[in-house]
Each structure stands twice: as C-alpha cells, then as structure tokens.
Amino acid sequence: MGAVLPLLALRAFSETTRLGSLKAAAERMGVTPGAISQQIRLLEDRLGVTLLTRSRHGVQLTEAGAGLYPGVSRGFGEIESALLDLEALARASTLTISTQPSFASSWLVPRLSSFSALHPGIEVRVEATAALVDLQRERVDIALRHGLGDYPGLQSMPLLAPVLLPVCSPALLASGPALDEPVDCLQYPLLQDADRADWTLWLQAHGFEPDSRSRRGPSFDEELLLLRAAASGQGIALVQAQHAEEGLRDGSLVVAVDRPWPSRFAYYLVARKEQLKRPQVRAFIDWIEGQLAGSRSTA
C-alpha cells in the first residue's frame, strides 16, 4: 500500500460500514455523500478490491471488506481513545478561570505568581471577559464574578465586597436635583465601568429596580479614568472607596449619596458542584481564601 496511509478514505469506509449508509457517514464526517463515495472508490482503486456493494437496503461488505473492517475499526477506536486520554491528561493539569477584565487586572493577575509558586504543576489559564460564561457547557472550571450571588444550579462563595462609593464633582451636585436615595443617581449622567454592570447591580443590592438609564453613559476600563471624568463634572462614578480618598480629601470629589454598603454585592467564586472535587479547583479555592484572609489581617 505504501508508507502513507489513506486515513481519510479508511475513515470513510469505517464510518459507512458502521453506520450502514453513505448519508449517515457523510453527516458524521461533515461532508457530502458524494465525497464519502469518492473516498471509498479511491481506497478500492488503491487496494485493487471491492470493499462495499450498494443496494436499495443500504451498503453491504464484500468478503474483502469484511476482512478489512475489524482492523480498521479497532485502529480508529484506539486513536480516539488515545486522544481522549491525552485531552483528559491535559485538562487535569489546567485550571481555567473566567473573570471580568477589571478584576483580572487589578486583583487576580498581580497575585497569581504566588499560586504558581505553590502549585507549579497546575497551569492557570485566565479568560478575562465581561460576557457571562455557561459553566455547564464551556470548558471553564471557575468563574469569578461581581454580583449578588444568585447563580441557579451552581455553587457560589463570597470572596470580597469592595466598598463602592458614588462620587462626583461638588459643582455637578450643586447644580442638580437632591440625592436622597440611591435611585436618585439615575437623574444624573452615570459614568460606567468597562462591563456596564456595577450601577445596575449596586441599585439592585439597595433594593431598587433599575431601568435602562443604569447602563447608559460613557464607560472606562480604569478607575483612574472614572475618577478624572467624575472630577471634571461629567457625571457620577461608582468607584472603590480607597481609590476616591485623595479626591475626597482635596475637595475635587464628594460622595453623591452616602449609604451603608450592601454586603450581598460582592465578588463571588462560582463553579459547578462536581468541579469543587477537582484537586486543582480545591487548591485554587484554598489559595484565594488565604489571600483574602491575609488582606483582611493587614487592612
């Protein structure tokens, strides 16, 4: 036959025999029935024998085909099994984490080197995206999300609740309507985080149902830019309290509405229940809990 095996033709023969029709084999391989037929003809020409015959009842193996099929089927089965084993091995040593870009850049990524030092055998893959991930279907082990902790069908654990303050310039506040409740902020232009999520969640956490205004306004991917936009009178920004300290001290910023922080509005670690049993996931949870405990003790 020669050194180069006609793998595509052999697979076309194997799938046609296994499934009993050219059409079913074509659907399985993602090609047309004509392409399957052509591959089988090429294989027969190369071997110099007829492997399959067709009738109104489907395809039947010839004597030569019956002799070839068991070995070909066994070979492809072993290849598939080997690939699945390799995929499982690669996945076992990889930990895929999905999180929001702002949290990845400001908190997670700067600390990941300590996790890698503790667990050099675990390869961490961070997917920084504002889009929600489907943990039931996508190959993501852990999601770190900012929200209220409501994730049906999933396990969630609160991580940290950064205190967010709505701040703006004194001039903006003096020229606009009074702010007595968190929902009153909707009467002003809102300055958005990169994910356009914080205002909506913050209002919900305070017991107010936001409308479309909660997602309108210019967005910024860094809190420094949010603070500068707020100080220049462009709107109200929702920022972490420690980042606003300098502006509040020098008077370029004021707190728009001062309310206690709603504890449910936090960063959560979210995963499928069965994923929590994986050693890599457990190791990450133990590490991140340690990081948070260290942060609290030095605060």
Rank of each mutant, 00 (worst) to 15 (best):
P120F: 12
S113H: 11
V109C: 08
V281P: 05
R272W: 00
V133K: 15
P260H: 12
R278M: 05
E87M: 04
I285L: 10
R264Q: 07
R278N: 00
G75T: 13
T50G: 14
E222N: 11
V49A: 13
C168T: 12
R54Y: 05
Y268W: 15
S93T: 10
A171Y: 00
D180Q: 11
L160E: 15
D258L: 11
G207C: 13
L253S: 03
F220E: 09
G207R: 14
Q275M: 08
V254K: 05
S37F: 11
S295G: 04
R272D: 01
A128I: 11
E289V: 14
E127T: 01
L112C: 09
G251V: 08
T16C: 10
L19Q: 15
V133Q: 03
L89Y: 10
V109E: 06
L132W: 03
Q136T: 12
L253T: 04
G147F: 01
W107M: 11
L269G: 15
Q291A: 07
L224R: 12
E181S: 10
R41P: 04
S102L: 12
E80Y: 14
H146I: 05
A293R: 15
A25I: 10
D45Y: 06
V59F: 11
L165N: 06
R272E: 00
L61G: 01
A205D: 02
F265N: 07
D85F: 04
P101C: 10
Q155L: 07
S116V: 08
G75Q: 13
T200C: 05
I285S: 04
S81P: 01
Y151A: 05
V133M: 03
G48A: 10
Q39V: 01
S252C: 08
L83R: 13
L51W: 09
P182C: 09
K23L: 12
G65P: 11
V133Y: 01
E15N: 01
I288W: 11
S14I: 01
A293M: 13
G147R: 07
L22T: 05
F208V: 02
A24V: 08
F103M: 08
L269Q: 13
A128P: 09
S297R: 11
P279V: 06
R215S: 14
S295Q: 11
E80M: 15
L10Y: 04
D180M: 02
P177Y: 00
G34R: 15
V255R: 08
F76N: 08
P70R: 08
A271R: 05
L253H: 04
A25T: 04
W261D: 03
E63R: 08
L144C: 11
L190N: 06
L179W: 03
R272V: 00
G251L: 03
Q100S: 15
F13D: 12
V167E: 03
R139P: 07
R74D: 07
L276N: 05
G67Q: 13
E138P: 02
V270Y: 02
S93R: 14
D180E: 10
M1H: 00
T99E: 04
